[in-house]
Each structure stands twice: as C-alpha cells, then as structure tokens.
Nucleic acid binder design. Structure first.
Lengths: 238, 238, 238, 238
DNA sequence: AGATAAGCGAGACGGTACGTCCCGTCTTCTG
DNA sequence: CAGAAGACGGGACGTACCGTCTCGCTTATCT
C-alpha cells in the first residue's frame, strides 16, 4: 500500500514505538523530517504541485535527496504530509446550539485557510490528486474525513434539535455547502468572500431548515428576525 | 497575452482569413493540427496533465515537436484546445418550462461527460489550472462561461415564471448546484451518480423554489407529495 | 557490439557518409564532439579514469550530459576516443637501416608520450580496461595494433638484412621490449628514463641480434667497444 | 601516511601486544576482519576495482560499513590487504643451480596466479593504483619488493656461477622478463601461456647468458642444439 | 519558371530534474 | 568500547523531457 500515513510509523522516535523494541540502526532525524516538511510547505506557497521539485525541497531543507525518498515514496505523499502537518489542529466545529452558526463558522475558517498562503497547498493536493490516486485518497482520509466526522456530529445535533430533517443525507448536504466553496476556489470564476459563504449557508440551510430564520452574516439585506418557528422545508425533506 | 484562443488565428486555413491575402509560404497542415489535438485527447485519457508530455503527443501524432510548439505556446494551451475541440457542441440547456427539469437534465449531461473518458480532460484542465493561470482562465472562458450564459437564461425564465425568487444570485445558485458535482468529481469521496444529481437538485431547488414540488428522480426515499403550500424559502430569498 | 569505433559512424558529417543519403534530423555538432573529447583529455590529465565523471566532462565542455551519452555508450568508449584522437599520428617507426636504431627511436618517442601529460590517459585506459573489456579491446585495436603493424615491418626489414633471425616470434620480441616499459610505467617501481630504454634495447636486441654492436645511448658504463663479431644470439634464435 | 600496513597494528589481538597492557574496550573482532578480507577477494573476482564498493563488501561480509572504515582508510588499502593475505606464502624461488630453471619456474608459478581467480585481484590492484598512489605503492612494497629480493639472490647466485655477467642491472633484467608477462596480462592482446613464459626466458636469458643452452620448454620449434660456444652477450653486459 | 518563404518530420542541442547508488560519517542499541 | 544497523548530507549516475535549433524536403505565393 501507499505511504499515506505519516512516515513516523516506519521508524519511530524513541518511545513512540508502542509495545515493540527500537528498530536497529540510526534513528531518523526528526530535525530533517521537519525541515523537509517546512520547505515543502514554503515552496508550495510559491509554486504549484507540478512545479515543486524534490530537488528544490531537499536543497531548501539542507538535506540529501535520498533522505526525502527514504521517507516519502513520491512527491504526492510528501505534499500530503506537509499539508496535513500544517493543518492538523484547525477547522474544528463549535457547538453553539445552532447548525447554521456552527456550519457557517467552520466554513469561514476553512475559507480563511484557502485564502491564506496555505490555500496553495490545498489546490496543489487536489491538482496532484487528479493524476495520483494515492494523493487524493490521502487528502480524503487525512483531511476531509476527520472534518466530515465532526460535521456529522454537528448536523446530527441539529437533527436532534429539530433544525434539520432526520432523513437528510449528510454527505449530500456537506457536498452542496462545501462544493460551492471548492468550485469557486479551484475555478476562480468569482471572488471567494465571507459574504459568499454566508449566502451559501443561507440558500442551502434556510432551504433545508424547518424555519429559514438565519440571515447571512454581514449582508446588508434586511434580515427579518431569527424567529424559531417559521421557515418550512420542501416536502421531500420534511 | 496568453494563447488561449485556437491557434487558427496565426495563420488561417484558406478562406478563413477575413479580408487579407494568403500569407506566403507553406500553409499549416490542418491534418497535423487535428492529429495533435486527437493525440492530446487520447493521451489525456490515459494519464493526467502533469504526466502528459509534448514529446509523447508529437510522437503519437507522428509530428515534429516543433510543429506543436509552432501553434501552441505550452501544454496548457494545447490541452485547452484539445478539450474545447472535443466538447464544443454539447451540454446545452433545454426549455421544458420547468427550471428543475432544465437544470437537472443539463447536470445529468454534464455528469455523463465527467464520467466518460473525456472527464479525464476536465480534471486535467482543472488540475493544470491550479498552477497555470492561463489554463484555468481558458477553462472559464471557453467552457464555463458559455454554459453559464445559457444557464442564466434558463434561470431567468424560471424567475419570470415565478419558480425562482427574483433577487436570487444566479452564480451562487449555480455554484451550489455544480460545486457539489465538481467536488465529488475531483475529490472522489463518493459515487457520482444520477441519483446524486437528482438529490442535489431536490435539496437546492426545492429549498430555493417557492413550492418544492419536484421529487428527486429514481430515489427510493418516500417523497411524500409535492404539496404546494409548504417549502418556503428563507426570508432573504423570498 | 560495443561502440569502440569513433562515434563518427553513427551519424556522419555531410559528405562523410560514403554512398547513402544524409540521416534525417539535425546533424551532430562536430563542435560539441570535439569539445567533449578535448575536455575528456584535459580532465584525464588531472585525475584518473575512476575519478573522471561524465558530469564533469559535460560541464567542462559546456555541453549537456545527454550529448555525451548520445555518442558514447560509456566512459570507457569516450576515454578511448579521447586517447585515440589525441595520439593519432604519432609514434611512427623510422627506417634507418638498423633495427636497433629504429626500435629505440620509437621506444623513446613512446616514452616521451608516457611521461607527458598524455601518459595519464594511457594509464587511465589500461586501468579502466581491467574492468571494461571493451575498453582494453579498443586500446588494442586502435592504439596497439597499428603500432605493431608498423613494428612488424621494421623487424622484418631487420630479418631481411640479417640483423634478426628469421624464425623470431615478433610479438614475443615486442612484448619483451615494450613490456619492460609498460611495467615500469604502471608499477612505478623505478625511474622511466631514456637510459632505461637504451638498456632494454641493448639487453634484448644485442642478445637477439647476430652481432650485438649497438651500445646503449648515453650510459656511463664502459661499453667496451661495439665489436661486430661477438654478441651472438642463443642457438634457438639463430 | 597512508594505511598500507595491515590494520592489525592499530589494535592488536590479545598477546600480540608486545610489552604493553591490553587496550581498554572490546577487542577487535578477528572474525570480522577475516570476513571482510574474504568478501573483498571474492567480490574482486567478480568485478574490477572500480566496481567494488565498500557497501557491497560490508553487506557480503555481514558487517557494518563503519567496521570496514575503522580498520582500512579506503578501498585501496582494503584491496591490498585482501590481495596480500591471499598470496602471502607463494611464489618463492627455488635453487636448482640454474638461473634459467629458477627463473622460469617462478615465472610459471606467477603465471598460474595471474590466470587463477586471484589474477583479478592483481589487475584490480594495478588498475586502482593508476589513480591511487598509495595503492600501487603498497603493491610494490608488499608484493613486488619481497619477490624481487628473492629474485636478486637467485640472479646473484647465477652471477657467482658465471651464468650471468656481473655487471648486469638486475632490475632491468627482471623488468624485461616480467614486463612481458604483465603486458600480456594487462593488455590481453595474446594468450598468456607457459610456452610464452618459456620463450621469454629463452630469448632473454639465452641472450643474456654466456652460452644460451637452455631451450624453451615444450616448444615445437627445432632448437638446433644448445651449442656452448656461441650465444654471447653484447659487449656491454659481458 | 524561378525565387522566396514558411511549414513539415526528424532529431540533436544545452539544460533541469528524476529516482538510485554509493560515498564516508554519524548515531543509535547490543554484546 | 567494538560491533551491526542503517540514516545522514552529498555527488554522480544514466534517463526523460523541456523548449530551441538545424537539417533536407515540401508546398505554397510572388515575381
């Protein structure tokens, strides 16, 4: 199988090797590993996936090319690790008691990532993933899935509170919400702003919520009150 | 500026040269041009954008490398041309009198393209476009925009018929509808089926429509009647 | 078979291609070829065969590595060509009417080559040839054999003049004469001087000549008269 | 200075350490040392000097690379040691009362070594020595010199017996005799047989002997009688 | 008809990066 | 402390393509 997990598992740092004994030989240089990942991130903020060369990463990190290849089988795996290690503990969901609030908050955080220099890495991973199945798989497993897991809980809480219909296909809803963001991010046919995110939520969640009460944040349009009892869903979802 | 228009403009086929006279010298070989585009498409169905080499295109087309470079400045322009010339007259919108029907029909056609061998070219263009601004621009201008223009008309007809609120942001709606497709197409975290398309339409359009009467096609879920009185939109859109 | 002939044969300069037509494609750059050979020679005078890198040759010649590999299959073939092209028209035999004089003259010329900067190339070829059969074969065919052919004639003239016995094994004689030079050149256990050459000739040829009259040149040792009547060969050779 | 002596001197085996005390720490593993030398010999019989890698030696010997480097400074020193340890007690000279017999016997033994699998090591050492001065020096000091010392005695006995002229340059004579062998061994332009050795001796020693009476062994050529009165040496040597 | 001009296939050119091998050094644990 | 193991920074390997160029040849228009 492809090396999509962090390389940490092949040879561990002391103590990181759960039950077993240390592998023989000189242990990997955590310093080198981090320098490589840091350089990869840095370089990816300047160029795209295709333009990134292992040669340049190694040189920038002050490391031999072989050291890179020892731990990552190819550019894709390296880029995924670089991405994952720079986005690990972000983009969590809050629990405000409102699906609308929780979702739009997280979507705005995601937006901020995409618009930051790290957004280049996301587009690099998706781009690279179009010809490297392992790369897009890693993106799914290491980035998308953990966030979806959290999102499911957020949405289920909404269901339990009656904000969402119980038979709603959660992945469908998430695809609709985030797909709009990904599309604009990748195709760049229009601005990717907080208003845009707000409007997505408004369109989708007010349509999908029993009472479409949550106005898009920071829109100038009159908001008309966040009343709990109105705003019915289309028949199919109720 | 970048060569995103077809190379036809540098030296035209006989008769294509509006007012002027024929340029001196041997005219370009239309045969070569088509062989190159055909080979590009063919090879892109086997590999991704990054893996496609001009060298291989030329060899496969039985053409000198210089002939490729004479007419296309780089791989991106070539790929866009190959894509455009293979998708020119497709994906039009019908006018059935129902936004729901028109949209879901076209989305299903689009889906069919993505799932066909030509879908590889779409993903190649989007992937390549992440590091080549001209490439994604060409995708927008030569593929996305024409389709959006048609979509606007379809949606405006819907507005006129009262199926859609008049202040609806059309690009937002289209991003939500198509973004979900693009996302699943690019990230491949779930199946890209006709049911999926139907459910997108149902969720978004029934939510976004004043009376969400159109059930998703061929879904097993009990649809519960397209009752006209419920399915309100959020205040912002009504 | 191995590429030991000059690369000239794969694609010829215009006119060099006896009967046939020109090969298609851009013709080889004679300039590049010579730059490469020149750089090879130059670098070999600074280092040995093992230390010579194609990388360095290409860099020094201002040429791409691939250009080197296009015309020479490996370092050995390149070094042989460099050696041959720098030693082509040298080391001929005179015809003075005396085997002794002709041989010792040529041997001294050879000595001069070995002691010059080009001697490094000879030792490089022999060294490299110990693990590359094609390399030592090329040395034999392109350097040793032509000289031996000339030497045979010189020795046969000596036979006809009665200076040498008619049943003498010419290769044996040449191995004995030159072997002593090669040995001292390669093992470096003693000085390789003109006196040494003179003494070899004196020992071998005066022993092998019917009348060993030629004294070693410039030796301090009392020579005791080059009397024509003594110095007979052993019975086997007379 | 270069490590050309056996590594034994750095840290001795127990008991080998003349007056002093045992060095502290774990003593070197004689087993490892021998495994390394054995592997070196074995691998050198398959490839040449340039192709031999310390990496491969260590792996083949089941030894860490560092252990090799601890005891030998470089490949040359290792190869010399491997060669010396596999040829230590061979190639001695007999004392038959005849220079001709003693020399040709030893030369044939030498020939046998060259033609055996160990001959590869000799050529490797000479080849390597062309770019590593220490290597060829070690070859001289540890292989050539001891044999020459013995050869001097053999030849001096011949002088005392009157078989050789007293003013003969011994190194010159040995170079002529052995040079012919080395040359054919290294350049491989002709077979290296016992007949060849016999003919060298016949040509050189019968020429260099006062009466060239010893016919080459097993030669087909009619020898025409070892007549005692002719076969004089050139004046310089008599 | 001949001159001029550009496109054609082929493939060599100077380069860059690839992924691998080995260098000689180092850092760990075990004996 | 030596030893096996094997990672480290580094350098060269031989290959694949890059985009440009130089060939001989072909196909056109312009004298």
């Amino acid at each position: 199988m492809r090396q999509t997990q962090s390389s940490v598992q092949k040879q561990s740092q002391p103590g990181n090797n759960a039950g077993g004994k240390r592998l023989p030989g000189r242990p990997r240089s955590e310093q080198a590993r981090q320098a490589i990942l840091r350089s990869t991130s840095r370089l990816l903020q300047r160029t795209g996936f295709a333009e990134l060369s292992i040669e340049a990463v190694a040189a920038h990190a002050g490391v031999g090319k072989a050291t890179v290849y020892r731990w990552w089988p190819d550019k894709g795996a390296l880029v995924v690790d670089a991405f994952a290690s720079s986005a690990e503990d972000e983009l969590h969901f809050a629990d405000s008691g409102s699906v609308y609030k929780d979702m739009s908050l997280q979507m705005n955080q995601f937006l901020a990532v995409l618009r930051s220099r790290r957004g280049r890495i996301v587009s690099a991973v998706i781009a690279g993933g179009q010809s490297d199945p392992g790369l897009i798989q890693a993106f799914r497993e290491r980035f998308l899935r953990p966030r979806r897991q959290e999102a499911y809980q957020t949405l289920r809480r909404g269901m339990e509170r009656g904000e969402l219909p119980r038979n709603l296909d959660l992945d469908l809803l998430l695809d609709v919400l985030y797909g709009a963001i990904y599309m604009r991010f990748l195709i760049r046919h229009a601005q990717l702003t907080e208003d845009y995110v707000a409007e997505i939520c408004h369109l989708v969640l007010n349509g999908a919520t029993k009472n479409g009460s949550h106005p898009p944040r920071s829109t100038k349009r009159t908001v008309g009150g966040g009343n709990g009892r109105n705003g019915k869903l289309g028949a199919a979802l109720t």
